[in-house]
């Protein structure tokens, strides 16, 4: 018991140093422009100001961007969840002919670098006529195979006891019914895990939302808005810090909420 306390001596300073950049970001958000550049590294601002926040809110249109980001992230996560849960279920339970090929193909594409494939994706979405709304960006984000979520769901569903399914089938439940009523609700930990990861990624996404909202800046997300603080001639550190602070709070809240589910989700899926 007492030995455990000694660890705090190590952990507390380590963690403080560890989160210094994060703390710096928050404190910079409250510093005046001159203090940011000339004041150095002190954590507490000499004089507190909300200028950066108002600037971030106005110039970077954070009000609009925030609601866009919510819509973009939630829709993306919903699609990823639905698609990877159904396919994970189909692959995880019952021997499906061609399963090995599909899984092999998925894993193979996992290691192909992305980014440079943006132009074909852009042409595709444009061809579908989806370029005027956020849906184009959502599809471009959610569309490419999310191999890890699929594998997580697959592993999780594969590990569920057969009796559960048999009993339901005996009662006359159909395949989709078994999935939506029995299996999916049991997969909450994986849902939480996949949701958290994809939400974080979608929330901070930059390149795809930028490319797909070129003509409609009112549709941009926070990740894109952040870059308006990088000028050709100078970077607005204070505005950037304020914007980053605003945009991080929801993520941290969600992490706190989902942390536990999340740990179980990975463990459960992989264990099987």
């Amino acid at each position: 018991m007492r030995r455990m306390h000694l660890w705090h001596l190590l952990l507390i300073p380590l963690c403080l140093a560890w989160i210094y950049p994060f703390v710096w970001m928050i404190s910079t958000a409250f510093k005046s422009e001159r203090e940011v550049f000339l004041g150095g590294l002190s954590v507490l601002p000499k004089e507190w100001t909300l200028d950066n926040f108002t600037r971030a809110w106005d110039t970077a249109h954070f009000g609009t961007y925030l609601s866009n980001t919510v819509v973009f992230s939630v829709t993306t996560v919903a699609i990823v969840l639905l698609v990877s849960a159904t396919s994970g279920y189909a692959l995880g339970r019952g021997s499906l002919p061609g399963k090995k090929v599909i899984v092999g193909l998925l894993i193979a594409t996992m290691f192909i670098p992305h980014g440079y494939t943006i132009i074909p994706i852009f042409k595709l979405v444009d061809g579908l006529g989806l370029n005027n709304g956020l849906l184009g960006a959502v599809l471009a984000t959610a569309g490419p195979a999310h191999v890890v979520p699929i594998l997580l769901f697959m592993g999780y569903f594969a590990g569920m006891p057969q009796e559960l399914e048999d009993a339901a089938r005996m009662d006359g439940a159909s395949y989709p019914r078994i999935f939506f009523r029995i299996m999916l609700p049991l997969a909450k930990p994986v849902i939480g895990t996949v949701a958290l990861f994809n939400f974080m990624a979608a929330w901070n996404a930059f390149f795809i939302p930028l490319v797909f909202t070129l003509g409609r800046p009112e549709l941009r997300t926070l990740g894109v808005g952040m870059y308006s603080f990088f000028g050709q001639e100078a970077t607005d550190w204070g505005g950037l810090a304020a914007a980053a602070t605003i945009s991080l709070l929801p993520i941290i809240a969600i992490f706190l909420f989902l942390q536990r589910t999340f740990v179980e989700g990975i463990a459960g899926a992989v264990k099987s």
């Binding site: 919510v70 819509v71 005027n132 956020l134």
Partner: peptide
């Protein structure tokens, strides 16, 4: 939380999904 956020932001932006 998600639903509330979507409701608030979504009402204003939902139409942005497909683009008006």
């Amino acid at each position: 939380v998600g639903a509330a956020a979507t409701a608030v932001g979504g009402l204003t932006t939902a139409c942005n999904l497909v683009g008006s």
